[in-house]
């Protein structure tokens, strides 16, 4: 009897559909604001990963001893402390990144992804799983940021640059990808941010729809095969 199994989805596929930004629309404010360049995207991404992993770990440790009705303020204090520490380190050791990210560093504390994961996952899982979850979500977020930044930077300025924030923004490499005649200037402005996000969100949505349709088709085929098998078995019994 042949069985029609659903296709196994790879890592990249999962990263696209379970993406906190494009899938759940969490952490949109910072995504739209920071995605102006590759440097900012990477800097912000790593900052969020730092806070997310540590907050998940700490919260998974104190959740068992925290009564339900004060859990929100407690989690908030934990996350806010981590963000303040991050902010102080960034201000001291990577001042260029600090001024590029600006107010959005403190706003990591209200990034829905962090409190969301704390509530949905970290409070009910052990340290290692929580840390892994934080890392995965953080990486997804970072990849979404990088995706949007690359589109905006390439179409808006035609150049991809990478700088080292620890060495006073020394340029690591700078590549002119698109000649000046093909640039779309407003891509670096707010409008470009919204448009890029909308188009990428539609792409993810379309991809998810396609997966859904494939799954439905497979389900239908499975049901038909099962029904057929049942009918055959019934016929065999009668015979």
């Amino acid at each position: 009897m042949s069985e029609i199994k659903p296709k196994k989805r790879g890592f990249i596929s999962k990263m696209i559909t379970d993406n906190p930004v494009f899938g759940l629309y969490l952490g949109i404010c910072s995504t739209l604001a920071i995605s102006t360049s590759l440097d900012n995207a990477i800097g912000m991404g790593i900052s969020v990963i730092f806070v997310l992993v540590l907050s998940n770990v700490v919260i998974s440790l104190i959740a068992p001893i925290t009564p339900d009705d004060i859990h929100i303020p407690v989690y908030i204090v934990v996350i806010a402390s981590l963000v303040t520490i991050l902010e102080m380190f960034l201000h001291a050791f990577t001042p260029d990144l600090y001024s590029a990210l600006g107010a959005f560093i403190s706003l990591i504390v209200v990034n829905c992804i962090i409190l969301g994961r704390a509530e949905a996952y970290a409070c009910s899982h052990n340290i290692v799983d929580s840390a892994k979850d934080g890392l995965m979500m953080g990486l997804s977020y970072t990849f979404s940021l990088i995706a949007i930044s690359l589109v905006r930077q390439i179409l808006g300025t035609g150049v991809i640059t990478l700088s080292n924030p620890f060495a006073g923004n020394a340029v690591v490499f700078s590549v002119q990808v698109l000649p000046k005649t093909f640039l779309i200037p407003f891509m670096t402005a707010e409008t470009g941010s919204f448009f890029t996000f909308g188009v990428l969100a539609a792409a993810v949505s379309g991809y998810k729809n396609k997966l859904e349709e494939e799954e439905k088709a497979i389900e239908k085929a499975q049901k038909a095969a099962a029904a057929k098998a049942k009918a055959e078995a019934a016929r065999k019994e009668v015979a």
Binding site: Y25, A189, E190, T191, G192, S193, F194, F195, F197, G198, V199, A201, A202, A203, S205, G206, N209
Partner: peptide, 16 residues
């Protein structure tokens, strides 16, 4: 593919 949030972002872009 654009239904719901994606088209909303495009509209927001035009407003911006």
């Amino acid at each position: 593919a654009f239904r719901g949030n994606p088209i909303a972002f495009i509209v927001a872009g035009i407003m911006a």
